[in-house]
């Protein structure tokens, strides 16, 4: 039983990281039907910025939690700038092009950003400081869930609730929903669709950067390539939940994270990806539009 709880906790942690990244994929897809392949790289860049900032702050004598918060903040700002720019230069000029063009542009941006970090930094893994302190109150259950895991879960949960409230109640959130449901009509009620798309990229990038900082601090090392696998997994989660659907992305991510954790724990960690993608295939056979996705209405 304890082993099961331990696996569940690590599955939820993975899942919530996937969710933070998957939200960016799904929100962008929901609005412009583009799979932003470079999204994983934003997450990676977030982690790198946080690493650099925490190095500098350590020199200036800052301590654990304050470094974590400042590093996350600056990483989020950087990632937002990257996400905004990415959309502006790589996708916006192709808004009316055939659908394959922005997709190829996305793959190109992904390769570009990876190689840019590779050249500007290093191909090696860099040690990431453990910025999350050990809480005393977690001591009794430390073998099931550690302090770092708790922080990841809580931070993700807060981010997701924040996003839900934003989408449901704020002016920009309503504009996002309107744009997602009917872009022309959104324009006809006065929504500036270009701004909505920019904001969508910014929000997705901020969430991904938060994920990058948390993972860096949790795993303890990062390199230029971490965005690729995390991106693939998060994208899988988004598809699993029904691409374009925000709660679906979170659900898909949690299902994926738990599947991987149980597969790794009860069978072998060598099989975790097999099970992860196996679940994807299975669910897509049973529910082609994903767990919470709506069946695509074909206009006849």
């Amino acid at each position: 039983m304890e082993y099961f709880l331990e696996l569940s906790s690590s599955g939820l942690v993975r899942g919530s990281i996937y969710a933070l990244i998957a939200l960016g994929y799904t929100m962008v897809y929901g609005i412009i039907q583009l799979i932003n392949f470079a999204h994983g790289e934003i997450y990676m860049i977030g982690a790198f910025v946080a690493l650099i900032v925490s190095g500098v702050l350590t020199i200036y004598g800052f301590s654990g939690v304050s470094i974590l918060i400042l590093a996350a903040l600056i990483a989020a700002i950087y990632a937002a700038a990257y996400g905004y720019t990415l959309e502006k230069i790589a996708y916006r000029p192709l808004r009316n092009a055939p659908r394959l063009s922005p997709l190829i542009s996305a793959i190109g941006m992904s390769l570009f950003l990876q190689n840019y970090v590779l050249l500007a930094q290093t191909p090696d893994f860099l040690r990431f400081p453990a910025l999350i302190p050990d809480f005393e109150f977690m001591e009794p259950i430390a073998h099931i869930m550690g302090s770092a895991e708790l922080v990841i879960l809580v931070t993700s949960a807060i981010s997701m609730v924040g996003l839900t409230v934003l989408i449901k109640y704020t002016r920009i959130g309503k504009a996002m929903r309107a744009t997602q449901q009917d872009m022309v009509m959104a324009r006809l009620v006065g929504v500036n669709v270009d701004n909505v798309i920019s904001v969508t990229f910014i929000i997705g990038s901020v969430l991904a950067a938060i994920g990058g900082v948390l993972v860096g601090s949790y795993i303890g090392q990062i390199n230029f390539y971490i965005g690729f696998m995390a991106g693939v997994k998060a994208f899988t989660a988004a598809v699993l939940g029904g691409i374009g659907n925000v709660p679906g992305a979170v659900l898909g991510a949690l299902v994926l994270g738990l599947t991987e954790a149980y597969a790794a724990g009860y069978i072998s960690s060598a099989y975790e990806d097999v099970f992860a993608f196996g679940v994807l295939v299975l669910i897509l056979i049973l529910r082609p539009s994903g767990l919470l996705g709506k069946a695509v209405k074909q206009k006849v």
Partner: peptide, 8 residues
């Protein structure tokens, strides 16, 4: 075609 926002 009215273009009502369907899930609002």
């Amino acid at each position: 075609g009215r273009r009502i926002f369907p899930t609002m």
